[in-house]
Simulated assay, not measured.
Amino acid sequence: MRLTPSRTKAAIGTGLATLALTVASAVPAHAINRVSDDCSWRTDFLRVFNEGVLCFANAGAMDVAIYGVYYVDSGNNVVTFRYRYNPDDSEREVTLPRNSNWTAPITPDRARAHEVTYISIQ
C-alpha cells in the first residue's frame, strides 16, 4: 500500500497524539494547594503561622514566599520545608513527621524566620 501525503500526515499526527498521551499519563499529578477558609483549628492540614495562619492540603511541592514564620505544624502529613532565618542566610531544610511541629529559633534580635521558600507534603 502506498502512503499518500495526506495519509502520511494523518499517521504522524496519530503517532504524536499517542506519544503525548503516554508522556502525560506517565507524569504523576501533584496537587498541593492552599486552603483559603479559616483552618487554624484543623489538625489534618500543614499549617504555617506568621501574622495569620496559612494552610495547605494534598501531596505535592511548591515554591512559596511566606515571611515572618514563627511556627509550622505538620498536621497529619510528613512535611519538608526550606527557610531562611535571616535574609542573607543560606536555606535550611527541615523535615517534620506526622503530627509534629517546628518553632523558629529565638535569638535576642529575632524570633521568626525571615522567609519560608519551599514546602512539600508527602
Rank of each mutant, 00 (worst) to 15 (best):
L3Q: 02
L3P: 00
T4P: 00
P5T: 06
S6A: 03
R7H: 06
T8H: 03
K9C: 09
A11I: 03
A11D: 09
I12F: 01
I12G: 08
I12H: 05
T14A: 01
G15D: 07
L16F: 01
L19F: 01
L19I: 06
L19Y: 02
L21R: 08
A24D: 05
A24F: 03
V27W: 07
H30D: 10
R34N: 06
V35E: 11
C39A: 15
T43L: 14
D44P: 03
F45L: 12
L46S: 09
F49M: 09
G52R: 13
V53Q: 13
V53W: 08
V53Y: 11
F56C: 05
G60A: 09
A61D: 02
M62P: 00
M62E: 13
M62R: 13
M62W: 10
D63C: 00
D63P: 00
V64N: 03
V64A: 02
I66K: 02
Y67C: 06
G68D: 11
Y70W: 11
Y71E: 04
V72Y: 10
S74V: 05
G75Y: 02
Y83R: 03
Y83K: 01
Y85K: 10
Y85R: 09
N86E: 11
P87T: 14
D88P: 03
E91D: 13
E91K: 05
R92Q: 15
R92P: 02
E93M: 10
V94K: 15
L96Q: 13
P97V: 15
S100Y: 06
S100P: 03
S100C: 04
P105C: 13
I106R: 15
R110W: 03
A111L: 04
H114P: 01
H114L: 06
T117Y: 07
T117H: 08
I119R: 08
S120Y: 00
Q122N: 07
